[in-house]
Structures are given as C-alpha cells and as structure tokens.
Design a protein around this nucleic acid. Structure first.
Length: 428
DNA sequence: TCTGGGGTCCTAGGACCC
DNA sequence: TCTGGGGTCCTAGGACCC
C-alpha cells in the first residue's frame, strides 16, 4: 500500500502556526512581487478567490471580507516542510518527498500488522502536535489511487477525520466514479478536453478505455496512468534527490529597457544557479538564457527570445556561468523593448566528481577554492559577497509588502514572549 | 499601475553514422 | 525516370506536476 500525505493549504497554514489569531479567518499567500494568489485557506476558497488570481484584481474583495494577505515567505515554508517531512520519515523506511507539501510513504506489508486507518490517524496527530500543520492522508494499493483517496479524505474531512483508505475493488470503483476526469493526477487541461469530447467524464470511464486509444492519444505516460488507476501497481517511489535542471527566473518589479540593467539581473541569476549547483555537487555544460517583454501589455511592442550556450568544460563556477550567460544575453538582447522578465536554466548536469579533465581546460583551477570560500562567507555574512557583474549599489527589491517573519530560521525574528512572575518581568 | 517560479517526462523529426 | 536499410543522438516542443 501507498500513503499520500498532503499538507492542507500549506503556505496559509504555515502563516497560521505563528499567528493563531488567523484561525477561522480567510488567509491568502501571494507569489513573488505580490503578483498572484498561490495559496488560500478554506475560508478564502469559500469567498471564491481562485488559485492564481492576480492580487490587484481582488484588492477590493480582500478589504471587504478582511482577508489576511501575506507575501510568500519561503524561508518559513521551507523550514516547516523539513520538519513535517522529518516526522513522516519515521513512519516508513521508504518515503518520496514529492513536493514542498506532499510525500508518498510506501507501507509495504504494513496492512498485515497495523490497522492502516489507525496508523494514519496517529501520523496526523503527531504532525499536528509537533508542527501545527494540518495534513490529510490517502491510502491505496497504487500511487494514483492514493491521490484519489487523499482527495476524498480532504473533501469529507468532517466524516473521515482527514484520512481515507481504499482497500477493496469496490472502494476503487467508488472512488474512481467520484473523481472528475480533470481532477485525476496526470490529466491536465489538454487531456481533459480530449477526453470530454469522447464522453469520458470521470476516472472510472477513463480506466474502461481501450489501451490502444490511450497510448495513441496520451502516450505511454497516459497508459501507465490508466493501469495504475485500475489497481495495477505501475508507478513506484522515485528518488529525485539530484536535480537534472536548475532554473532561476524572476519577473522584474517594473519594466527595464537598458542592456546594463538586464545584464545585472542575468548575472545575478547565473550566480544563484551556480550556488545551487555547488550545493548539490553538480556541474553543468549548458546554460539557457531567456528574456521577454510584458505579455499582458498588448499596447506595447512584444519580443521574446532565448538561447542555449554550450560550455565546453562542465563547471559550477559562478565566474564561468556568469560569463556564459552574458555571452548568450548579448546575442538575444534587442534595443527598444521594455523587458519584464528574464531567467536562466542550467542543464546537462553531471556530478562534480566526474568532471572531465581536459587538456585545454578553460577554467582556472583556483575557482574551486574561491567558490567554496565565497559560499562559506555568504552563509555566514548573509549574501555579502557579489561578483563584478552584479551592481553593488543597486538594491533590487522584490515587492514584498506583507512579509511575515522568519520565525524558525532567523534568530532575530523568533517569537518573543514577555511575562512577569514572582521573580519579576522576564523575556523569552 | 499591478498578472509567479520551478520542475519532470515523452515524442517527433533532423542530423549523422555504417 | 530510376536511388536501401538500419541505427543513435540531439533538440524543440508539448504535456504534466506542485
């Protein structure tokens, strides 16, 4: 059996942990630059605020219904996620951390020794008590069915207590009939449309389609999904510890048109990507650069471009990557446009230990030590060391007007409790 | 005025090889 | 006019996920 554990409204729940006055009230969390709604509490969902809603369009509604609005605080969410995952990993030797707020647990053979419903209730209790984050658990014979079970657990939480087990043919069929085709894990907008057209409206009807049709229209991925949903164990846990691509992309807080401004941004993104590479001990041999204008401003001339720059010797040196990224940018940058977004992606990653030593190595061997030193300094001194391509004076500031504190990862921002007792006033 | 960011996998088609 | 058969590798693009 597989369990899918999912944190309910994760970012919104993180904000509540350190601010319990928010319980029972609508809470939303915004994306970078305070652009879109990316998390909503149940109360906010009930107000009809959709996922991805541009925040400026909902400002009036926020005020009217006293919605508590937060900028995203990834330092907090990342740390809370680690805490939750650490607890979950004590409940099974096999865990796949699927995203910041979801994990699959393999419970192979557990059903012979435990009542799985009781077991999952215990997990829920422990996570809630230890972190304050509410979770839902779905258990089933396959991963995609565990997803279905999880949805049922969450939808009927009053009745299920946050957990639901699919453990019979009958329950599989009931669950699949209940699941709308567009809500199936792995069925997105395009497939949904195509399936609706041939009168497939729920997951059960999908599992009744001929394999041939599914493979032809939805490739091998769709066929695997169909079989997994039917109860055949096709999808297994995956370990995704080492990333295959790393991206750093940002929208600007306003539009920029000068090459120097964009170059500074791109250099910073490339430097960030290099740091991430070094953190997972990888090198890359390709960097992809893109930039584009504001697609929402149909009144302005539009331009978008991208380029892949090959790097002869795999590297994770910030200096080399910044150089390569700027080479690419010079080729695609065009004057006369107002740019709103740029980004880079490093690809073709290889383990740093397997680095090819070439006769004509382009990279200065001293970079290795230099980068290590910079990384150490930046951890200690809060990102003070920069590269010449980055403007030292400019303070690029993301719009983050409603940021909560880094309660769990910054000593200056932990919660302070003042109280007095017979020994006098004390602060904790 | 204001509209996010970061990933994965698969397929078709072209370039190239013998 | 007529022009084989079988591979591999790479890339762009499309689909999906959170």
């Amino acid at each position: 059996m597989f369990a899918l554990v999912d944190c309910n409204n994760f970012y919104a729940s993180c904000e509540r942990v350190f601010n319990p006055a928010l319980n029972g009230k609508p809470v939303v969390v915004l994306s970078n630059n305070d652009g879109c709604v990316i998390a909503r509490s149940n109360e906010a969902k009930a107000l009809g605020i959709p996922m991805g809603a541009p925040s400026f369009e909902y400002e009036i509604l926020f005020v009217k219904y006293k919605v508590n609005v937060f900028s995203s605080n990834y330092a907090l969410y990342g740390d809370m996620s680690t805490r939750v995952m650490n607890i979950l990993s004590t409940y099974s030797p096999d865990i796949e951390i699927y995203s910041i707020d979801e994990a699959f647990l393999k419970l192979e053979g557990f059903e012979q020794h435990y009542n799985l419903e009781v077991y999952s209730k215990e997990i829920i209790q422990n996570v809630t008590r230890s972190t304050g984050i509410p979770i839902s658990i779905g258990i089933a014979p396959t991963k995609s069915l565990a997803k279905v079970a999880n949805k049922i657990a969450k939808k009927f939480s009053l009745r299920t207590g946050g957990t639901y087990v699919i453990d019979s043919e009958d329950k599989i069929k009931k669950g699949l009939l209940w699941t709308k085709i567009g809500d199936v894990w792995g069925i997105g907008r395009q497939h949904e449309k195509r399936l609706q057209k041939i009168k497939v409206h729920n997951a059960w009807e999908f599992t009744q389609l001929p394999n041939q049709w599914v493979q032809k229209e939805m490739s091998i991925v769709g066929l695997r999904l169909k079989r997994d949903l039917s109860g055949e164990r096709i999808l297994d846990l995956e370990d995704a510890a080492i990333k295959k691509n790393i991206a750093v992309t940002r929208s600007f807080e306003k539009m920029y048109s000068s090459f120097e401004d964009i170059r500074e941004r791109v250099a910073t993104y490339a430097g960030k990507a290099a740091e991430k590479l070094r953190r997972q001990n990888s090198c890359c041999s390709m960097i992809y650069v893109f930039l584009h204008t504001n697609g929402f401003r149909e009144d302005l001339p539009q331009y978008r471009a991208n380029i892949a720059v090959h790097i002869p010797n795999p590297t994770n040196s910030s200096i080399e990557l910044i150089k390569a990224a700027i080479t690419g940018l010079e080729k695609i940058f065009k004057k006369g446009f107002q740019y709103k977004k740029a980004g880079i992606m490093v690809m073709n990653l290889t383990p740093a230990s397997q680095r090819q030593l070439s006769l004509f190595t382009a990279e200065n061997p001293k970079h290795q030590t230099l980068m290590k030193t910079i990384d150490r300094l930046n951890i200690r001194e809060n990102q003070k060391v920069k590269f010449a391509g980055q403007d030292l004076d400019r303070t690029w500031k993301m719009k983050q007007e409603k940021l909560s504190k880094r309660y769990t990862s910054c000593l200056n921002e932990v919660i302070i409790i003042n109280c007095s007792d017979s020994f006098g006033d004390r602060t904790f």
